[in-house]
């Protein structure tokens, strides 16, 4: 693919991999949609929620998670912009990349804190359907976040190397996944923790 400066060619490669990525994200979306469907069914068929006299998780930590993941998306957007701008924005590229990575790890840290807190108030995995749902949804989401962080680490070398057109395709696609997980978390926050 020695066609680095071929403008329309790059645009087309971008379009092709975007199509692939979007189809993949539809698949991921269906996974979360099914899980949320299960949640909704249980929630609507129970007269009191949370059931069996369980306590609702305090909203503080989930809210913090939401802020962190939103900030990480913004940081990633800056990274995309700085990378596209080329060598002129080298510092901004590095700062925004490590900011994203840091916020991603921070999100995971908050999740671990959340699980510890849930255990503290008696919400164990095997304690009934309500904690089962909470754990499953957050676990599956966190597993995807781990995947996204690993993908982000794949980009580490290119942060220091010079600008490359093939890398920008990777960056845009990993970005789509990153923002997608942010949106999923937002939906989970609203559906599970906020109401």
């Amino acid at each position: 693919m020695e066609m680095a400066n071929n403008g329309p060619h790059l645009e087309r490669r971008k379009a092709v991999s975007s199509i692939g990525m979007i189809i993949l994200l539809v698949s991921f979306a269906m996974l979360f949609a099914s899980l949320l469907l299960g949640y909704t069914v249980f929630r609507l068929t129970n007269e009191v929620w949370p059931p069996m006299g369980m306590e609702m998780v305090p909203i503080t930590l989930p809210f913090l998670s939401t802020l962190v993941i939103a900030a990480s998306s913004v940081a990633y957007m800056n990274f995309e912009k700085a990378y596209s701008a080329g060598e002129s924005k080298l510092t901004s590229r590095k700062v925004s990349y490590f900011m994203t990575l840091f916020l991603g790890l921070a999100f995971m840290a908050v999740q671990f804190e959340l699980w510890a807190q849930m255990a503290d108030i008696g919400l164990y995995v095997s304690a009934g359907i309500f904690p089962s749902l909470l754990y499953t949804l957050t676990w599956v989401h966190a597993a995807h976040i781990v995947m996204a962080i690993l993908a982000l680490l794949l980009l580490l070398p290119s942060v220091f190397k010079e600008h490359s057109d093939t890398k920008i395709i990777w960056i845009l696609n990993i970005g789509k996944f990153w923002h997608f997980l942010g949106v999923i978390w937002l939906i989970m926050f609203v559906v599970i923790f906020a109401f």
Binding site: S34, L35, M52, V125, S126, A127, G128, S132, T136
Partner: peptide, 30 residues
Amino acid sequence: PVLGAGLLLLIFDRVFGTTFFLAGAAATSG
């Protein structure tokens, strides 16, 4: 992915002791 979700829940039920698909006498709790 919908089947994937179902299978994940089934695996969780079997491995981690969640109670998605257990009811009545089959469920120890919940």
